[in-house]
Amino acid sequence: MRNLLALVVVGLIVYTVIDVVRSDERERLGLHKVLWVAFIVLLPVIGSVTWLLVRRTPGRRPGPGPGIRTVPQAPLAPDDDPEFLWRLEQERRRREREAGGAGPTSRTDPSDPTPPAAGPPADPADPTPTS
């Protein structure tokens, strides 16, 4: 029985050391690999259990393994899509101009089909000239 317990502890140490070495900085809570390995080797049971608890905390999803690239995902909802929001704002401004009978007050042309390169739509109340 005593030998089985020692074998389990050694297996736990080996598993957690390999897991620490293969982890990224985000999973290690910003600590260096050497510090985690030293903690696990010096305090085998406490260090290994602590690593397993820190590594498996809810709310943090582990990223892809080494060598795997992630592809940026498209927005899941229309209100997450900057191009959709830009078009919606242009349509709202066009309706306001048509309803009010006033001339164009916006610095952006609503008939322009291309969205701005980056950033939020221009604010018509902002007196700062652009370009």
Rank of each mutant, 00 (worst) to 15 (best):
L12I: 05
T130V: 09
L76I: 03
A77P: 00
V54A: 08
P75F: 03
S131D: 12
P64D: 04
V71Q: 12
A125R: 11
R28L: 03
A117C: 01
R87S: 11
I68G: 04
E83L: 07
G63W: 00
Q90R: 15
R94A: 15
P44Y: 00
R55H: 12
W51P: 03
V10T: 13
L7P: 00
V10K: 12
L43T: 11
G100E: 13
L43R: 06
A38F: 09
W86Y: 15
A38I: 05
A118C: 04
V17E: 09
G11A: 15
G47D: 00
G59Q: 04
E27Y: 00
E83G: 13
V37S: 03
P113L: 04
S131Q: 10
T105I: 09
D80P: 00
S111V: 05
L5R: 14
G67W: 05
V49L: 07
A122K: 05
P64W: 01
R22W: 02
R55A: 11
L35K: 07
M1T: 07
T114K: 10
P66L: 10
F39T: 08
D126Q: 06
T114Q: 12
L29A: 02
P115V: 08
G63V: 00
A99F: 04
T114N: 14
D109L: 03
I68N: 12
P78I: 01
P64S: 05
W51L: 02
P82C: 08
P104F: 06
L43V: 10
S106M: 04
R93N: 10
P121R: 02
H32P: 06
I13Q: 13
E25Q: 11
W36V: 01
L12T: 11
V9R: 09
I68V: 15
T108N: 06
G65M: 10
P124S: 09
L85S: 11
E27F: 00
R97C: 08
F39Q: 08
I18A: 13
G30I: 07
V71Y: 09
E98M: 05
L52V: 05
E98T: 06
T128Q: 08
R60G: 03
R61M: 11
R61W: 13
G103V: 11
Q73H: 06
R94L: 15
E98G: 03
S131V: 08
L42W: 08
S111L: 07
V34L: 13
